[in-house]
Design a protein around this nucleic acid. Structure first.
Length: 506
RNA sequence: GCUCCGGUGGUGUAGCACGGUCAAGCAUUAGGGACUCUCAAUCCCCCGACUCGGGUCCAAAUCCCGACCGGAGCACCA
Protein backbone atom coordinates (compact mmCIF):
# COMPACT_ATOMS: atom_id res chain seq x y z
CA UNK A 1 0.00 0.00 0.00
CA UNK A 2 2.71 2.56 0.79
CA UNK A 3 4.20 1.68 -2.57
CA UNK A 4 0.94 2.59 -4.28
CA UNK A 5 0.67 5.90 -2.44
CA UNK A 6 4.22 6.74 -3.38
CA UNK A 7 3.58 6.11 -7.06
CA UNK A 8 0.34 8.05 -7.01
CA UNK A 9 1.96 11.11 -5.51
CA UNK A 10 4.80 10.79 -7.95
CA UNK A 11 2.38 10.77 -10.88
CA UNK A 12 0.36 13.60 -9.40
CA UNK A 13 3.45 15.73 -9.07
CA UNK A 14 3.73 15.81 -12.85
CA UNK A 15 1.70 18.28 -14.86
CA UNK A 16 -1.26 17.11 -16.91
CA UNK A 17 0.76 17.63 -20.04
CA UNK A 18 3.63 15.52 -18.79
CA UNK A 19 1.25 12.81 -17.72
CA UNK A 20 -0.34 12.79 -21.14
CA UNK A 21 3.02 12.59 -22.88
CA UNK A 22 4.12 9.63 -20.84
CA UNK A 23 0.81 7.94 -21.28
CA UNK A 24 0.73 8.35 -25.04
CA UNK A 25 4.26 7.05 -25.38
CA UNK A 26 4.16 4.14 -23.03
CA UNK A 27 0.53 3.20 -22.64
CA UNK A 28 -1.34 4.46 -25.72
CA UNK A 29 -4.23 2.06 -25.12
CA UNK A 30 -5.41 3.86 -21.99
CA UNK A 31 -6.04 7.08 -23.85
CA UNK A 32 -8.83 5.47 -25.83
CA UNK A 33 -11.98 6.12 -23.94
CA UNK A 34 -14.00 2.99 -23.88
CA UNK A 35 -17.47 3.19 -25.31
CA UNK A 36 -19.74 3.19 -22.36
CA UNK A 37 -22.59 0.75 -22.55
CA UNK A 38 -25.92 2.52 -22.28
CA UNK A 39 -27.02 2.47 -18.70
CA UNK A 40 -30.23 0.66 -18.01
CA UNK A 41 -32.26 2.01 -15.21
CA UNK A 42 -32.80 -0.67 -12.70
CA UNK A 43 -33.85 -0.88 -9.13
CA UNK A 44 -31.14 -1.38 -6.50
CA UNK A 45 -30.79 -4.70 -4.76
CA UNK A 46 -32.63 -5.13 -1.50
CA UNK A 47 -30.75 -5.60 1.74
CA UNK A 48 -30.88 -9.06 3.28
CA UNK A 49 -32.93 -10.81 0.66
CA UNK A 50 -32.30 -14.46 1.14
CA UNK A 51 -33.62 -15.62 -2.15
CA UNK A 52 -37.15 -15.07 -1.03
CA UNK A 53 -39.03 -11.99 0.00
CA UNK A 54 -42.46 -11.34 1.41
CA UNK A 55 -43.83 -7.90 0.64
CA UNK A 56 -47.10 -6.10 0.72
CA UNK A 57 -49.18 -3.34 -0.69
CA UNK A 58 -51.47 -1.73 1.82
CA UNK A 59 -54.04 0.63 0.33
CA UNK A 60 -57.05 1.81 2.24
CA UNK A 61 -60.33 1.08 0.49
CA UNK A 62 -61.40 4.69 0.27
CA UNK A 63 -61.59 4.40 -3.49
CA UNK A 64 -59.97 2.83 -6.54
CA UNK A 65 -56.22 3.08 -7.01
CA UNK A 66 -54.70 6.16 -8.60
CA UNK A 67 -51.43 6.88 -10.33
CA UNK A 68 -49.73 7.54 -7.01
CA UNK A 69 -50.60 4.07 -5.74
CA UNK A 70 -49.17 2.51 -8.87
CA UNK A 71 -45.65 3.30 -7.72
CA UNK A 72 -46.04 1.34 -4.52
CA UNK A 73 -47.68 -1.54 -6.38
CA UNK A 74 -45.07 -1.77 -9.09
CA UNK A 75 -42.05 -1.39 -6.84
CA UNK A 76 -43.24 -4.18 -4.59
CA UNK A 77 -44.23 -6.35 -7.51
CA UNK A 78 -40.88 -5.88 -9.22
CA UNK A 79 -38.95 -7.07 -6.21
CA UNK A 80 -41.13 -10.06 -5.54
CA UNK A 81 -40.72 -11.05 -9.16
CA UNK A 82 -36.98 -10.49 -8.99
CA UNK A 83 -36.29 -12.53 -5.87
CA UNK A 84 -39.28 -14.80 -5.72
CA UNK A 85 -41.58 -14.94 -2.75
CA UNK A 86 -44.97 -13.59 -1.95
CA UNK A 87 -46.81 -10.35 -2.60
CA UNK A 88 -49.65 -9.60 -0.26
CA UNK A 89 -52.46 -7.19 -0.95
CA UNK A 90 -53.58 -6.00 2.43
CA UNK A 91 -56.63 -3.83 2.45
CA UNK A 92 -56.49 -1.53 5.43
CA UNK A 93 -60.08 -0.92 6.34
CA UNK A 94 -59.94 -0.29 10.06
CA UNK A 95 -61.51 3.12 9.76
CA UNK A 96 -65.19 2.49 8.94
CA UNK A 97 -65.74 6.15 8.19
CA UNK A 98 -63.34 6.14 5.29
CA UNK A 99 -64.46 3.18 3.21
CA UNK A 100 -66.03 2.95 -0.22
CA UNK A 101 -67.28 -0.61 -0.66
CA UNK A 102 -66.59 -0.37 -4.38
CA UNK A 103 -62.89 -0.20 -3.62
CA UNK A 104 -62.78 -3.79 -2.37
CA UNK A 105 -63.58 -5.07 -5.84
CA UNK A 106 -61.88 -2.37 -7.86
CA UNK A 107 -58.45 -2.37 -6.19
CA UNK A 108 -57.70 -5.96 -7.21
CA UNK A 109 -58.92 -5.20 -10.73
CA UNK A 110 -56.67 -2.15 -10.94
CA UNK A 111 -53.71 -4.22 -9.81
CA UNK A 112 -54.46 -6.98 -12.22
CA UNK A 113 -54.62 -4.51 -15.05
CA UNK A 114 -51.26 -3.09 -14.00
CA UNK A 115 -49.79 -6.55 -14.27
CA UNK A 116 -49.17 -6.83 -10.55
CA UNK A 117 -49.32 -10.41 -9.35
CA UNK A 118 -51.02 -10.63 -5.99
CA UNK A 119 -50.38 -13.91 -4.20
CA UNK A 120 -52.52 -13.33 -1.19
CA UNK A 121 -55.36 -11.04 -0.19
CA UNK A 122 -55.72 -9.93 3.41
CA UNK A 123 -58.50 -7.74 4.67
CA UNK A 124 -57.74 -6.20 8.01
CA UNK A 125 -61.29 -5.94 9.24
CA UNK A 126 -61.46 -9.73 9.01
CA UNK A 127 -58.61 -9.98 11.49
CA UNK A 128 -60.02 -8.03 14.39
CA UNK A 129 -59.65 -10.91 16.83
CA UNK A 130 -55.97 -11.08 16.04
CA UNK A 131 -55.52 -7.40 16.88
CA UNK A 132 -57.52 -7.77 20.07
CA UNK A 133 -55.36 -10.67 21.17
CA UNK A 134 -52.14 -8.88 20.46
CA UNK A 135 -53.44 -5.91 22.39
CA UNK A 136 -54.34 -8.10 25.37
CA UNK A 137 -50.78 -9.36 25.40
CA UNK A 138 -49.42 -5.84 25.46
CA UNK A 139 -51.79 -4.78 28.21
CA UNK A 140 -50.68 -7.77 30.20
CA UNK A 141 -47.08 -6.79 29.65
CA UNK A 142 -47.88 -3.33 30.91
CA UNK A 143 -47.10 -1.80 27.53
CA UNK A 144 -50.58 -0.62 26.76
CA UNK A 145 -53.13 1.15 28.91
CA UNK A 146 -56.65 2.43 28.79
CA UNK A 147 -56.87 6.18 28.92
CA UNK A 148 -60.03 8.08 29.66
CA UNK A 149 -58.53 11.53 29.52
CA UNK A 150 -60.06 14.17 27.32
CA UNK A 151 -58.25 14.35 24.01
CA UNK A 152 -56.95 17.84 24.66
CA UNK A 153 -55.62 16.98 28.10
CA UNK A 154 -53.92 13.92 26.81
CA UNK A 155 -52.25 15.89 24.02
CA UNK A 156 -51.21 18.71 26.28
CA UNK A 157 -49.53 16.38 28.75
CA UNK A 158 -47.61 14.51 26.11
CA UNK A 159 -46.38 17.74 24.67
CA UNK A 160 -44.79 18.40 28.03
CA UNK A 161 -43.56 14.82 28.38
CA UNK A 162 -45.87 14.30 31.33
CA UNK A 163 -47.48 10.93 31.92
CA UNK A 164 -51.24 10.84 31.96
CA UNK A 165 -52.71 9.56 35.24
CA UNK A 166 -53.81 6.31 33.60
CA UNK A 167 -50.37 5.38 32.39
CA UNK A 168 -49.43 3.62 35.60
CA UNK A 169 -52.87 2.46 36.65
CA UNK A 170 -53.46 -1.14 37.55
CA UNK A 171 -53.29 -3.52 34.63
CA UNK A 172 -56.62 -4.96 35.64
CA UNK A 173 -58.32 -1.63 35.01
CA UNK A 174 -56.98 -1.46 31.49
CA UNK A 175 -57.93 -5.08 30.88
CA UNK A 176 -61.46 -4.52 31.99
CA UNK A 177 -61.85 -1.33 29.98
CA UNK A 178 -60.55 -3.12 26.92
CA UNK A 179 -63.11 -5.91 27.17
CA UNK A 180 -65.85 -3.39 27.82
CA UNK A 181 -64.86 -1.43 24.75
CA UNK A 182 -64.93 -4.57 22.62
CA UNK A 183 -68.37 -5.51 23.80
CA UNK A 184 -69.72 -2.08 22.97
CA UNK A 185 -70.29 -0.87 26.49
CA UNK A 186 -68.31 2.28 25.92
CA UNK A 187 -69.04 5.21 23.68
CA UNK A 188 -66.75 6.81 21.20
CA UNK A 189 -64.13 9.09 22.81
CA UNK A 190 -64.91 7.67 26.21
CA UNK A 191 -61.63 5.81 26.21
CA UNK A 192 -58.65 5.13 24.02
CA UNK A 193 -55.98 2.48 24.29
CA UNK A 194 -52.47 3.74 24.27
CA UNK A 195 -49.11 2.14 23.58
CA UNK A 196 -46.42 3.17 25.99
CA UNK A 197 -43.33 4.38 24.24
CA UNK A 198 -40.98 7.01 25.51
CA UNK A 199 -42.33 10.18 27.07
CA UNK A 200 -39.07 11.93 26.34
CA UNK A 201 -38.95 10.99 22.70
CA UNK A 202 -37.90 14.09 20.77
CA UNK A 203 -40.80 13.71 18.39
CA UNK A 204 -43.98 14.38 20.37
CA UNK A 205 -46.09 12.26 18.03
CA UNK A 206 -44.06 9.19 18.89
CA UNK A 207 -44.70 9.61 22.61
CA UNK A 208 -47.39 7.21 23.85
CA UNK A 209 -49.47 6.85 20.74
CA UNK A 210 -53.06 5.73 20.51
CA UNK A 211 -53.51 2.20 19.24
CA UNK A 212 -57.25 1.61 19.53
CA UNK A 213 -60.27 3.83 19.51
CA UNK A 214 -63.96 3.28 19.95
CA UNK A 215 -66.06 3.88 16.85
CA UNK A 216 -69.84 3.84 16.62
CA UNK A 217 -70.04 4.09 12.85
CA UNK A 218 -71.04 0.77 11.33
CA UNK A 219 -68.48 -0.95 9.15
CA UNK A 220 -69.46 -1.61 5.52
CA UNK A 221 -68.29 -5.22 5.76
CA UNK A 222 -69.23 -6.06 9.31
CA UNK A 223 -72.01 -3.71 10.29
CA UNK A 224 -72.13 -3.08 14.03
CA UNK A 225 -70.19 -6.19 14.95
CA UNK A 226 -67.15 -4.27 16.17
CA UNK A 227 -66.92 -1.19 18.31
CA UNK A 228 -63.22 -1.03 18.97
CA UNK A 229 -60.90 -0.51 16.03
CA UNK A 230 -57.11 -0.52 15.86
CA UNK A 231 -55.39 2.49 14.39
CA UNK A 232 -53.11 1.99 11.49
CA UNK A 233 -49.88 1.94 13.44
CA UNK A 234 -51.05 -0.94 15.55
CA UNK A 235 -52.64 -3.14 12.92
CA UNK A 236 -49.80 -2.52 10.51
CA UNK A 237 -47.14 -3.54 13.01
CA UNK A 238 -49.02 -6.68 14.00
CA UNK A 239 -49.74 -7.69 10.45
CA UNK A 240 -46.30 -6.90 9.12
CA UNK A 241 -44.96 -9.37 11.63
CA UNK A 242 -47.65 -12.02 11.51
CA UNK A 243 -47.71 -12.09 7.72
CA UNK A 244 -43.96 -12.62 7.75
CA UNK A 245 -42.92 -9.54 5.81
CA UNK A 246 -39.25 -9.36 5.01
CA UNK A 247 -39.24 -5.96 3.30
CA UNK A 248 -41.51 -2.96 3.40
CA UNK A 249 -41.49 -0.38 0.64
CA UNK A 250 -43.73 2.62 0.99
CA UNK A 251 -43.82 6.37 0.74
CA UNK A 252 -41.74 8.72 2.82
CA UNK A 253 -44.86 9.99 4.53
CA UNK A 254 -44.69 6.83 6.63
CA UNK A 255 -41.25 7.42 8.10
CA UNK A 256 -42.69 8.64 11.37
CA UNK A 257 -45.11 5.75 11.47
CA UNK A 258 -42.26 3.32 11.13
CA UNK A 259 -40.76 4.75 14.29
CA UNK A 260 -43.99 4.17 16.16
CA UNK A 261 -44.48 0.70 14.80
CA UNK A 262 -41.03 -0.38 15.88
CA UNK A 263 -42.14 -0.24 19.52
CA UNK A 264 -44.60 -3.07 18.94
CA UNK A 265 -41.85 -5.12 17.37
CA UNK A 266 -39.50 -4.41 20.23
CA UNK A 267 -41.99 -5.29 22.98
CA UNK A 268 -42.72 -8.61 21.34
CA UNK A 269 -39.15 -9.37 20.41
CA UNK A 270 -40.07 -9.57 16.75
CA UNK A 271 -37.47 -9.17 14.02
CA UNK A 272 -37.89 -6.01 12.00
CA UNK A 273 -38.45 -6.10 8.27
CA UNK A 274 -36.17 -3.99 6.10
CA UNK A 275 -37.83 -0.63 5.52
CA UNK A 276 -37.55 1.55 2.43
CA UNK A 277 -39.25 4.88 1.95
CA UNK A 278 -39.40 6.47 -1.47
CA UNK A 279 -39.84 10.20 -1.91
CA UNK A 280 -43.13 11.91 -2.38
CA UNK A 281 -44.31 12.65 -5.87
CA UNK A 282 -46.15 15.79 -6.70
CA UNK A 283 -48.70 15.37 -9.46
CA UNK A 284 -49.45 18.74 -10.99
CA UNK A 285 -52.90 19.21 -12.49
CA UNK A 286 -54.03 15.70 -11.61
CA UNK A 287 -57.00 15.09 -9.39
CA UNK A 288 -56.17 12.30 -6.96
CA UNK A 289 -57.88 13.01 -3.67
CA UNK A 290 -60.61 10.48 -3.19
CA UNK A 291 -62.69 12.84 -1.11
CA UNK A 292 -62.72 15.41 -3.91
CA UNK A 293 -63.43 12.79 -6.54
CA UNK A 294 -66.30 11.34 -4.53
CA UNK A 295 -67.91 14.69 -4.06
CA UNK A 296 -67.47 15.47 -7.74
CA UNK A 297 -69.07 12.22 -8.78
CA UNK A 298 -72.00 12.75 -6.45
CA UNK A 299 -72.46 16.29 -7.73
CA UNK A 300 -72.46 15.02 -11.30
CA UNK A 301 -69.33 16.97 -12.07
CA UNK A 302 -67.46 13.78 -12.96
CA UNK A 303 -68.96 10.88 -14.87
CA UNK A 304 -67.46 8.34 -12.47
CA UNK A 305 -64.17 7.00 -11.14
CA UNK A 306 -62.98 6.59 -14.71
CA UNK A 307 -63.68 10.18 -15.75
CA UNK A 308 -60.69 11.03 -17.91
CA UNK A 309 -60.04 14.20 -15.98
CA UNK A 310 -59.06 12.12 -12.96
CA UNK A 311 -55.77 10.52 -12.03
CA UNK A 312 -57.25 7.09 -11.26
CA UNK A 313 -55.89 3.96 -12.86
CA UNK A 314 -59.34 3.51 -14.35
CA UNK A 315 -59.11 6.87 -16.07
CA UNK A 316 -55.64 6.22 -17.46
CA UNK A 317 -56.86 2.95 -18.77
CA UNK A 318 -59.86 4.53 -20.41
CA UNK A 319 -57.62 6.95 -22.23
CA UNK A 320 -55.61 4.09 -23.64
CA UNK A 321 -52.40 4.09 -21.63
CA UNK A 322 -50.42 0.88 -21.56
CA UNK A 323 -49.65 -0.85 -18.31
CA UNK A 324 -46.02 -1.18 -19.41
CA UNK A 325 -45.74 2.58 -19.22
CA UNK A 326 -46.47 2.63 -15.51
CA UNK A 327 -43.88 -0.01 -14.85
CA UNK A 328 -41.13 1.61 -16.85
CA UNK A 329 -41.84 5.03 -15.44
CA UNK A 330 -41.66 3.91 -11.82
CA UNK A 331 -38.63 1.73 -12.32
CA UNK A 332 -36.89 4.69 -13.93
CA UNK A 333 -37.85 6.79 -10.94
CA UNK A 334 -36.13 4.42 -8.58
CA UNK A 335 -36.46 4.37 -4.82
CA UNK A 336 -34.72 7.52 -3.78
CA UNK A 337 -35.99 9.49 -0.87
CA UNK A 338 -36.02 12.74 -2.77
CA UNK A 339 -39.36 14.27 -3.53
CA UNK A 340 -40.07 14.77 -7.18
CA UNK A 341 -42.54 16.00 -9.67
CA UNK A 342 -44.43 13.64 -11.92
CA UNK A 343 -43.42 14.30 -15.49
CA UNK A 344 -46.30 13.99 -17.88
CA UNK A 345 -43.95 14.50 -20.82
CA UNK A 346 -41.76 11.58 -19.91
CA UNK A 347 -44.72 9.39 -19.04
CA UNK A 348 -46.39 10.13 -22.37
CA UNK A 349 -43.19 9.69 -24.26
CA UNK A 350 -42.72 6.25 -22.73
CA UNK A 351 -46.28 5.39 -23.60
CA UNK A 352 -45.81 6.53 -27.16
CA UNK A 353 -42.82 4.27 -27.55
CA UNK A 354 -45.06 1.32 -26.76
CA UNK A 355 -47.93 2.19 -29.07
CA UNK A 356 -46.52 4.12 -32.00
CA UNK A 357 -45.48 1.20 -34.16
CA UNK A 358 -48.69 -0.74 -33.73
CA UNK A 359 -51.37 1.93 -33.85
CA UNK A 360 -53.28 2.50 -37.09
CA UNK A 361 -53.45 6.00 -38.48
CA UNK A 362 -56.63 7.73 -39.49
CA UNK A 363 -57.74 11.15 -40.69
CA UNK A 364 -59.81 13.32 -38.41
CA UNK A 365 -60.79 16.85 -39.35
CA UNK A 366 -61.62 19.01 -36.42
CA UNK A 367 -64.04 21.92 -36.93
CA UNK A 368 -64.57 20.85 -40.52
CA UNK A 369 -65.21 22.79 -43.71
CA UNK A 370 -66.87 20.83 -46.50
CA UNK A 371 -65.47 21.53 -49.94
CA UNK A 372 -66.84 20.91 -53.42
CA UNK A 373 -63.69 20.68 -55.45
CA UNK A 374 -63.98 21.87 -59.03
CA UNK A 375 -62.53 19.67 -61.75
CA UNK A 376 -61.83 16.88 -59.26
CA UNK A 377 -60.87 13.85 -61.37
CA UNK A 378 -62.14 10.36 -60.70
CA UNK A 379 -59.63 8.21 -58.86
CA UNK A 380 -59.18 5.13 -56.74
CA UNK A 381 -56.63 5.31 -53.97
CA UNK A 382 -55.18 3.26 -51.17
CA UNK A 383 -53.89 4.89 -48.04
CA UNK A 384 -51.53 3.07 -45.74
CA UNK A 385 -52.74 2.67 -42.19
CA UNK A 386 -49.21 3.11 -40.89
CA UNK A 387 -46.24 4.76 -42.54
CA UNK A 388 -43.92 1.84 -41.93
CA UNK A 389 -45.84 -1.04 -40.41
CA UNK A 390 -47.22 -2.89 -43.43
CA UNK A 391 -49.07 -5.40 -41.29
CA UNK A 392 -51.60 -2.72 -40.49
CA UNK A 393 -52.82 -2.73 -44.10
CA UNK A 394 -54.45 0.10 -45.94
CA UNK A 395 -57.80 1.70 -46.63
CA UNK A 396 -59.41 2.31 -49.98
CA UNK A 397 -61.38 5.20 -51.44
CA UNK A 398 -63.09 5.77 -54.78
CA UNK A 399 -63.24 9.46 -55.47
CA UNK A 400 -65.61 11.00 -58.04
CA UNK A 401 -65.88 14.56 -59.44
CA UNK A 402 -68.77 15.30 -57.10
CA UNK A 403 -67.29 13.75 -53.96
CA UNK A 404 -67.43 16.19 -51.10
CA UNK A 405 -64.26 16.53 -49.06
CA UNK A 406 -64.00 17.81 -45.51
CA UNK A 407 -60.88 19.49 -44.21
CA UNK A 408 -60.20 21.20 -40.94
CA UNK A 409 -61.05 24.88 -40.85
CA UNK A 410 -57.84 25.32 -38.94
CA UNK A 411 -55.97 24.27 -42.08
CA UNK A 412 -58.31 25.90 -44.58
CA UNK A 413 -59.15 29.25 -43.05
CA UNK A 414 -55.62 30.71 -42.97
CA UNK A 415 -55.21 30.11 -46.72
CA UNK A 416 -55.58 32.95 -49.19
CA UNK A 417 -57.19 32.61 -52.59
CA UNK A 418 -54.74 30.97 -54.92
CA UNK A 419 -52.89 29.08 -52.18
CA UNK A 420 -52.38 25.39 -52.76
CA UNK A 421 -52.35 22.51 -50.28
CA UNK A 422 -51.92 18.78 -50.56
CA UNK A 423 -54.76 16.47 -49.59
CA UNK A 424 -52.59 13.72 -48.25
CA UNK A 425 -52.31 10.74 -50.63
CA UNK A 426 -54.97 12.19 -52.97
CA UNK A 427 -54.17 15.39 -54.85
CA UNK A 428 -53.41 19.09 -54.58
CA UNK A 429 -56.14 21.68 -54.39
CA UNK A 430 -56.17 25.43 -54.76
CA UNK A 431 -58.32 27.80 -52.76
CA UNK A 432 -60.59 29.93 -54.96
CA UNK A 433 -63.17 32.63 -54.23
CA UNK A 434 -65.91 30.04 -54.84
CA UNK A 435 -64.29 27.26 -52.82
CA UNK A 436 -61.61 24.98 -54.14
CA UNK A 437 -60.31 23.52 -57.38
CA UNK A 438 -58.17 20.60 -58.37
CA UNK A 439 -54.50 21.56 -58.77
CA UNK A 440 -52.70 18.45 -59.90
CA UNK A 441 -52.07 14.96 -58.69
CA UNK A 442 -48.33 14.93 -58.27
CA UNK A 443 -46.82 15.44 -54.89
CA UNK A 444 -44.87 18.66 -54.74
CA UNK A 445 -42.18 18.76 -52.14
CA UNK A 446 -42.69 21.45 -49.56
CA UNK A 447 -46.42 21.73 -50.09
CA UNK A 448 -48.43 21.79 -46.90
CA UNK A 449 -50.09 18.46 -46.29
CA UNK A 450 -53.56 18.29 -44.77
CA UNK A 451 -55.75 15.42 -43.73
CA UNK A 452 -59.23 15.09 -45.21
CA UNK A 453 -62.39 13.00 -45.04
CA UNK A 454 -64.41 12.12 -48.15
CA UNK A 455 -68.20 11.97 -48.09
CA UNK A 456 -68.12 13.28 -44.55
CA UNK A 457 -70.82 11.66 -42.48
CA UNK A 458 -69.31 10.37 -39.30
CA UNK A 459 -69.28 13.01 -36.62
CA UNK A 460 -66.77 12.21 -33.94
CA UNK A 461 -66.08 13.90 -30.65
CA UNK A 462 -62.83 13.63 -28.76
CA UNK A 463 -62.88 14.29 -25.04
CA UNK A 464 -59.73 15.74 -23.58
CA UNK A 465 -58.41 15.35 -20.04
CA UNK A 466 -58.66 19.09 -19.45
CA UNK A 467 -62.43 18.85 -19.72
CA UNK A 468 -62.74 20.26 -23.22
CA UNK A 469 -63.65 18.34 -26.34
CA UNK A 470 -63.10 18.57 -30.09
CA UNK A 471 -65.64 17.68 -32.71
CA UNK A 472 -65.20 16.89 -36.38
CA UNK A 473 -65.48 14.28 -39.09
CA UNK A 474 -63.58 11.05 -39.04
CA UNK A 475 -63.01 8.45 -41.71
CA UNK A 476 -65.60 5.68 -41.87
CA UNK A 477 -62.83 3.15 -41.30
CA UNK A 478 -63.00 3.89 -37.62
CA UNK A 479 -65.99 1.58 -37.59
CA UNK A 480 -63.75 -1.34 -38.48
CA UNK A 481 -61.62 -1.28 -35.37
CA UNK A 482 -61.51 -0.72 -31.66
CA UNK A 483 -59.03 0.72 -29.26
CA UNK A 484 -56.32 3.13 -30.20
CA UNK A 485 -55.98 5.17 -33.35
CA UNK A 486 -53.62 7.93 -34.18
CA UNK A 487 -55.50 10.79 -35.73
CA UNK A 488 -52.75 12.19 -37.92
CA UNK A 489 -51.44 15.56 -36.86
CA UNK A 490 -53.85 15.48 -33.95
CA UNK A 491 -52.81 12.78 -31.53
CA UNK A 492 -53.60 9.34 -30.21
CA UNK A 493 -57.23 8.69 -29.42
CA UNK A 494 -58.81 5.74 -27.70
CA UNK A 495 -62.12 4.89 -29.30
CA UNK A 496 -64.97 4.75 -26.84
CA UNK A 497 -67.80 4.21 -29.29
CA UNK A 498 -68.48 4.90 -32.97
CA UNK A 499 -68.91 8.58 -32.36
CA UNK A 500 -66.68 9.46 -29.46
CA UNK A 501 -63.28 8.78 -28.02
CA UNK A 502 -60.73 9.93 -25.49
CA UNK A 503 -57.60 11.88 -26.12
CA UNK A 504 -54.45 10.08 -25.02
CA UNK A 505 -51.53 12.28 -26.00
CA UNK A 506 -49.80 13.60 -29.08
C1' G B 1 -41.84 25.84 16.92
C1' C B 2 -40.21 20.60 17.34
C1' U B 3 -38.70 15.76 14.95
C1' C B 4 -37.07 13.37 10.68
C1' C B 5 -35.66 13.31 5.53
C1' G B 6 -33.64 15.37 1.26
C1' G B 7 -31.15 18.95 -2.27
C1' U B 8 -27.23 16.71 -9.82
C1' G B 9 -29.49 20.77 -16.31
C1' G B 10 -36.73 23.02 -17.60
C1' U B 11 -38.34 17.82 -16.06
C1' G B 12 -37.19 12.55 -14.49
C1' U B 13 -32.85 10.16 -13.13
C1' A B 14 -27.33 7.65 -13.05
C1' G B 15 -23.06 8.40 -10.09
C1' C B 16 -22.54 9.19 -3.71
C1' A B 17 -22.24 2.95 0.95
C1' C B 18 -15.66 1.81 -1.07
C1' G B 19 -13.01 10.14 -2.90
C1' G B 20 -9.33 9.55 -8.39
C1' U B 21 -11.92 6.11 -14.41
C1' C B 22 -17.08 12.50 -13.66
C1' A B 23 -14.28 19.07 -17.38
C1' A B 24 -20.61 14.40 -14.87
C1' G B 25 -23.92 9.37 -18.27
C1' C B 26 -29.11 8.39 -19.85
C1' A B 27 -34.08 9.89 -20.88
C1' U B 28 -37.46 13.79 -21.81
C1' U B 29 -38.36 18.79 -23.32
C1' A B 30 -36.78 23.26 -26.06
C1' G B 31 -33.72 24.67 -30.48
C1' G B 32 -31.21 23.22 -35.34
C1' G B 33 -30.79 19.66 -39.30
C1' A B 34 -31.63 14.90 -42.26
C1' C B 35 -35.51 11.76 -43.75
C1' U B 36 -40.73 11.45 -44.56
C1' C B 37 -47.26 12.34 -48.82
C1' U B 38 -48.63 13.32 -40.32
C1' C B 39 -46.27 19.40 -37.14
C1' A B 40 -45.76 11.52 -35.75
C1' A B 41 -41.80 8.03 -35.71
C1' U B 42 -36.58 7.48 -36.88
C1' C B 43 -31.48 9.51 -37.27
C1' C B 44 -27.82 13.45 -36.42
C1' C B 45 -26.40 18.06 -33.96
C1' C B 46 -26.98 21.53 -30.06
C1' C B 47 -28.31 24.47 -25.31
C1' G B 48 -28.40 23.07 -20.29
C1' A B 49 -26.69 20.65 -13.73
C1' C B 50 -23.22 18.71 -9.00
C1' U B 51 -27.69 24.88 -3.85
C1' C B 52 -23.99 28.04 -1.33
C1' G B 53 -19.78 28.71 2.07
C1' G B 54 -16.00 26.51 4.84
C1' G B 55 -13.04 22.01 6.13
C1' U B 56 -10.25 17.19 5.35
C1' C B 57 -7.19 15.42 1.27
C1' C B 58 -2.17 15.05 -3.63
C1' A B 59 -7.48 14.54 -5.25
C1' A B 60 -14.57 15.81 -3.31
C1' A B 61 -20.84 15.50 -6.88
C1' U B 62 -18.97 11.65 -3.52
C1' C B 63 -16.48 12.47 3.44
C1' C B 64 -17.19 16.44 7.68
C1' C B 65 -19.35 21.23 9.48
C1' G B 66 -22.50 25.40 8.70
C1' A B 67 -26.01 28.20 5.96
C1' C B 68 -29.89 28.34 2.65
C1' C B 69 -33.86 25.96 0.20
C1' G B 70 -37.51 22.04 -0.23
C1' G B 71 -40.54 17.97 1.72
C1' A B 72 -42.97 14.90 5.44
C1' G B 73 -44.91 14.24 10.30
C1' C B 74 -46.65 16.56 14.84
C1' A B 75 -50.89 12.44 18.18
C1' C B 76 -58.10 8.78 18.22
C1' C B 77 -56.68 9.05 8.78
C1' A B 78 -54.09 5.50 6.03
Amino acid sequence: MPEISRIISEVNSLSIGEQQDIASQEFPEILHKEEKAPQEHHLPDLRNHNGRVVMRMAPSPSGPLHIGHSRMAILNDEYVKRYGGELILRIEDTNPANIDPFAYEQIPRDLEWLGVRVDRLVIQSDRMDIYYNEARKLIEMGKMYACTCKTEDFKAKLLKSIACPHREQDIAISKEAFENAISGMMKSKEAAFVVKTDLDHPNPSVRDWIAFRIIDTPHPRHGAKYHLYPLMNFSVAVDDHLLGLTHVIRGKDHINNTEKQKYIFRYNGWALPEYYHYGLVNFPDVILKTSIIKKGIQAGQFSGWDDIRLGTIMAFRKRGYRKETFRKYWIDSGMREIDSEFSKEIFNSINKSFIDAITPRLFFVKNPVILNIAKLPESAIDIRNHPTNRDLGHRHYDIFPDTKIAVSSEDWAPLKDGDTVRLKDLCNIRKTPDGAEFAGKDMIKGLQIVQWVPDPELRFRVYRPDGTSDSGFVEKYILNGDGLFQFERYGFVNKGSNDEGYFLHR
